[in-house]
Design a protein around this nucleic acid. Sequence first.
DNA 1: CCCTGACATTCCAGTCACAGGAAGCCTCTC
DNA 2: GAGAGGCTTCCTGTGACTGGAATGTCAGGG
Lengths: 133, 133
Amino acid sequence: MTNLTIGEVAKRANLPAKTIRYYEDIGLITPLRDSNGYRVFRDSDFHKLTFLGRARALGFTIEDCRTLLALYEDDSRASADVKAIAQKHLTEIEAKITDLQAMHATLSELSQKCCGDARPDCPILEGLSGQAN
Amino acid sequence: MTNLTIGEVAKRANLPAKTIRYYEDIGLITPLRDSNGYRVFRDSDFHKLTFLGRARALGFTIEDCRTLLALYEDDSRASADVKAIAQKHLTEIEAKITDLQAMHATLSELSQKCCGDARPDCPILEGLSGQAN
DNA sequence: CCCTGACATTCCAGTCACAGGAAGCCTCTC
DNA sequence: GAGAGGCTTCCTGTGACTGGAATGTCAGGG
């Protein structure tokens, strides 16, 4: 049972203090307050913050994090609800990877054709301008 | 030599009219104005818009697009300058793909372990909460 | 008892690339 | 001349913070 200031919990949860204040603002955590107005972080707050840090690192949106946190706190949850969120997010990640790979393929093809010297001829610019070749 | 209204050029460049107005706001294009205040898009504006559309679709930032457009208009450019921007962007794309693949690997591993039924036991939540197993 | 430096607080503005919507002109057709 | 649709500007909101200003608090040293 350790009570932490925002600076200490920030170090331990590996999150910027600004981010932690923001999470309080939007209602993800509700730390106590000391008589001097300082936030007081209990173990439960610390755990929520590490949970949020990991979920954000996996690319979940804040709203997904809110839902996941609520499920985490709910002893009568159905794991199916959690899995559904995870699967939806996995699909989105796959879509982003596909998009990025398509961009990469197109751009690297153009880039390879560009000799990259002092002359102005540039297949990259030609490709962007829509010229067939 | 065709002069277009914003709606027409939006259709042909396959960009929302809102986006085109925004591009004018930030100085990427400078269409003429008719006596009634309507924007008048020349062929050169249309070409710039398609160029911008393609560059954005490849994930270049607006500032990169601004630079690329300037290079495109500059007959005495060095293709090396274009290629440098492209290579930098390719590196960023690769970094993003790597990040996303790491997220995907972690999350899909957790998700596979979750049976996703009505019971509360959930390896996904356990993973997010930082439990070793 | 005061000073300094490191903390903490709140609040406001900025990021990026638009999207949505309101209020009001312009143009064309019936 | 009435309505539909397109055009204009201006303002706000998005997501998830980040930076900075102005101010308050605390611990230790002179």
